[in-house]
């Protein structure tokens, strides 16, 4: 009983580093595009009742292009970093590219398909591939993405991942 440091500590730490990569921790501490866009023409709210994560995604869509995208809210490291990195990756993308990115990201973190997406093709977002080893955390990683898609679709009401 009690912590068996030698036995537990070393391999586990590297395990956890697969989930909590430096880039993720950095975006958690200093989330990018973390503000409201006052005149955003697309907006949605996401909520994960399991952990109480709440966030709003703002999009300025012009001629089918994501001119600007931002978010505000509270969440765990995974959901905050995912939101932050999503906003970085989608700026300047077309609406259909953004939706395609959603699908790819979802596949990356769930990996239910026989042919997992090429992590390298995901660019920086590949750091989230560790999430697939933590099924209960998938909802954290995808909350911002679901919310972004809802904003593009202008779905009514809040998005819940439950």
């Amino acid at each position: 009983m009690g912590p068996q440091k030698g036995k537990r500590g070393v391999p586990l730490m590297s395990d956890l580093r697969d989930l909590y990569q430096e880039v993720i921790l950095d975006h958690h501490k200093k989330p990018r595009n973390f503000h409201k866009i006052e005149h955003a023409n697309r907006r949605a709210e996401g909520y994960n009742p399991l952990c109480g994560d709440k966030l709003s995604v703002y999009i300025q869509l012009e001629n089918g292009i994501v001119k600007d995208i931002s978010f505000v809210g509270t969440g765990c490291a995974i959901s905050t970093a995912s939101a932050s990195m999503m906003t970085e990756s989608l700026k300047g993308k077309s609406e259909s590219e953004a939706k395609e990115a959603f699908e790819k990201f979802h596949q990356l973190v769930t990996n239910h398909s026989d042919s997992p997406p090429d992590a390298a093709a995901m660019g920086k977002l590949a750091v989230f591939s560790g999430v697939r080893e933590y099924p209960v955390r998938v909802k954290c990683a995808t909350l911002a993405w679901h919310t972004m898609r809802a904003a593009l679709d202008q779905s009514q009401g809040a998005v819940a991942t439950e």
């Binding site: 912590p3 537990r8 909590y20 765990c76 995974i78 209960v136 954290c140």
Partner: peptide
């Protein structure tokens, strides 16, 4: 500085089961 959910995941990795959430 650490969300309860992250605490829960890391503790779980070390075999410690707690509840996190509301």
């Amino acid at each position: 500085g650490v969300h309860p959910h992250d605490i829960g995941t890391i503790l779980d990795k070390h075999g410690i089961a707690i509840r996190t959430g509301h």
